[in-house]
Design a protein around this nucleic acid. Sequence first.
DNA 1: CCGCAACTTGAATCCATGGTCAAGATCGGC
DNA 2: GCCGATCTTGACCATGGATTCAAGTTGCGG
Lengths: 191, 191
Amino acid sequence: MTAETPRLRADARRNVEGIRTAALDVFRAHGLNSPLDEVARAAGVSKGTIYHRFGGRQGLIDAVVEELVAERITGIITAVRDIEDPVERFESYLRQIWLLQYDEPAANDVLLRAMPGSDPLVALCERASEIAGGLLAEAQATGKVRDDLTSEDVYLLIWERGIIARACTEQPRDGYRRRCEYTLRGLRSGA
Amino acid sequence: MTAETPRLRADARRNVEGIRTAALDVFRAHGLNSPLDEVARAAGVSKGTIYHRFGGRQGLIDAVVEELVAERITGIITAVRDIEDPVERFESYLRQIWLLQYDEPAANDVLLRAMPGSDPLVALCERASEIAGGLLAEAQATGKVRDDLTSEDVYLLIWERGIIARACTEQPRDGYRRRCEYTLRGLRSGA
DNA sequence: CCGCAACTTGAATCCATGGTCAAGATCGGC
DNA sequence: GCCGATCTTGACCATGGATTCAAGTTGCGG
């Protein structure tokens, strides 16, 4: 694993690292659809180099996604496990995912399945979806969460938030968060 | 008012009408950002003619917006007036606006204030916002609607729905509607 | 019917982005 | 140090939409 490829020339290795770093910055700030030109500029190379080294946007994303996003999402998944109350657990999961979508455009792109070509991403999304389904079922079992809510709904609620978060750059985080709470509140069983 | 402009030649008048009609169709179907090419094709003229006659997208929009959208929105406003229960009235207003946003991309563009240059649109939006504020206040007075909800929130809830509706083309109307209900439900006072 | 003003056209320009590639620059083994 | 293999560059093409305008077409008053 340390040297599967014939080994790169020193300058190439330096560039690969520089590009990865730049991509992390740019993607974090503006999402996975940022112009590659911008990444190139940030890395101090020309975009041709990115295509040469990573084969295009998809390859570049694959090369940084783990560090960029995966740990954030798995972090939420594990953090939520410790919560006792199933309702609390379910709501906390959604809340955190929704905030992640606001805070990290790149994570948002991943959750929106904006990159259907990337295997690790798809896997991650599916894992998250399954988890959400489980949390939902447990929460519903308490009778405190609407039972007409489906896994599909939850997926779509996340999708909707993603769309919003994308457009939200200007909007203050606090209002966003509050409106998330309203929706969350609406998922509880009726009075 | 019948003939302020020197009077158009017959073919020009015919074209103006044709373009207006085509624009109504196209805008209704794909929103106010549809390529002008498409409008031109539908009208059987070249896009140059649209620029010549209307001075560009903005002018074209101004020329059709009344017929396109205004009556839909004012229709909702008046329809809602007859509802007795303030809570019901408020919720019905939101519900109908949200569905309008799904059903008519053009109306949605208007509500999203996507065209800040057009006076009648801005006026219409402001009127709608005021109405919404009033409905909210009355609904809150019953104690059945969260009193931490602000007019600003309501505006933003509509904005959020608009963003979603824009991206929603594929999504079934029914799910959209259901998720609207969830949010609506979340606006009621807590248990 | 003429002839000009009014109209229309579509080719041209611009912009922003994704993506490619021949040619020149540089590394590093010998 | 030399020279070929490896890298990088930046100019180039393509796409899709907005916008303009010179040149050609057409209505219509006289």
